[in-house]
C-alpha cells in the first residue's frame, strides 16, 4: 500500500549527483513514511552513502529535491530545522576521539541548545544509560569495543531526540552475529525512542527482517520500493538478481565443484 504525502516524513525526487564525469545518482525518487524503518539496499558502489549524504546536506546534489515534512531542504531555514530534528549515524561512527563518551554525546546539546550544563549532563547520561553504556561515560572512544562505539554513536545521534535518524551502512565490516545485533538495536531503539529510521545497507536478510519498507538502488535509480514481503516475492529482474545472489553463488559454486580437478 502506498503511503499518502501526509504520512511521509522525507521525500526525495529526481535526485542526481555527479563526481566529475561519473554519474552516481541518476534521478532517485524515494519516500520515507513517518515512524517506519526504511532501508535502501544496493550493491557496493551503487551510491547508497552518497544518497544519504545528499539527504543530510553533507554533499550538494546536482539536481533534484529533498523535502522534510513537505518543506524543500534547499531553503536554508528548512535545512537548519531539518538538522535540529535529524540524527546521522556514520559508517565510521565519526566519534571525536579526543572527547570522552559523555562529552561526545553532550556535544550536540552543548552546541545547538541553550540547556543548562546540568541538564545537558543528565540527558547525555540518560542516553548512555538507555544504550547500556553509562558505565563507560568517562572512557574515550578508542577504549571501547566496536559494538560499544556503534552504540555510543547512536546515543549521540539520538540525544537531541531527533524525529529522523539516518544510518549509513551500520553493519559494514561486522560479522553476522554483530550484524544481527546492530539491526536488533536499530529496531529496539526505534520503538523505544519513536524516531523514523532510514538505513542504507547491503545486508539483505537482516534488512528484510528489521524493516517496514525496502528500496533497491541500482544503476543510480530506485529499481524497487515496497514492503519486505513485496521485495521477497517481486519478479522484478534486478530485485530477483540481488535477492537471489546467495542462491546464485551456491549454484555457480556447485557447477565449479562438479568440474574435474585439473592436475597442478
Amino acid at each position: 500500500m502506498e503511503s499518502t504525502p501526509s504520512q511521509e516524513i522525507l521525500c526525495v525526487e529526481g535526485l542526481e549527483k555527479k563526481f566529475q564525469a561519473r554519474e552516481v545518482l541518476r534521478g532517485v525518487d524515494l519516500r520515507v513514511p513517518r515512524g517506519s524503518i526504511s532501508t535502501v539496499l544496493g550493491p557496493s558502489g551503487a551510491g547508497k552513502s552518497v544518497l544519504l549524504k545528499c539527504i543530510a546536506g553533507i554533499l550538494e546534489p546536482n539536481a533534484g529535491l529533498v523535502s522534510f515534512e513537505g518543506r524543500p531542504l534547499c531553503d536554508p531555514a528548512a535545512r537548519a530545522d531539518f538538522r535540529s530534528r535529524c540524527g546521522f549515524l556514520f559508517q565510521s561512527n565519526a566519534l571525536f576521539d579526543s572527547l570522552t563518551a559523555l562529552e561526545n554525546v553532550a556535544l550536540p546539546l552543548e552546541q545547538t541548545t541553550r540547556l543548562p550544563a546540568r541538564e545537558v549532563r543528565e540527558r547525555s547520561l540518560s542516553a548512555l544509560r538507555r544504550l547500556d553504556i553509562e558505565e563507560f561515560a568517562e572512557h574515550y572512544p578508542g577504549q571501547l569495543s566496536g559494538g560499544m562505539q556503534k552504540r555510543l554513536a547512536l546515543a549521540r545521534a539520538i540525544v537531541a531526540q531527533p524525529e529522523l535518524v539516518l544510518f549509513d551502512e551500520p553493519t559494514a565490516g561486522l560479522d553476522p552475529l554483530r550484524r544481527n545485533a546492530v539491526f536488533a538495536m536499530i529496531a529496539k531503539y526505534q520503538r523505544r525512542f519513536g524516531f523514523t529510521a532510514l538505513v542504507v545497507t547491503h545486508d539483505v536478510p537482516e534488512a528484510l527482517a528489521a524493516s517496514d519498507r525496502v528500496a533497491l538502488l541500482e544503476g543510480g535509480r530506485i529499481a524497487f520500493q515496497g514492503t519486505p514481503a513485496e521485495f521477497s516475492s517481486s519478479t522484478n529482474p534486478t530485485v530477483a538478481m540481488f535477492r537471489d545472489s546467495v542462491q546464485a553463488l551456491g549454484e555457480s559454486l556447485s557447477a565449479i565443484r562438479s568440474e574435474p580437478l585439473q592436475p597442478a
Binding site: C86, S92, Q111
Partner: peptide, 21 residues
C-alpha cells in the same frame, strides 16, 4: 584526520558550525 574520519561532517549534520567550533 577529523576531516578524513568524518568528524567534521558529523558536526555539520548535528547543526554545529564546524568553523566556529
Amino acid at each position: 584526520i577529523q576531516r578524513n574520519t568524518e568528524q567534521i561532517a558529523a558536526l555539520e549534520t548535528m547543526g554545529v558550525n564546524s568553523l566556529g567550533y
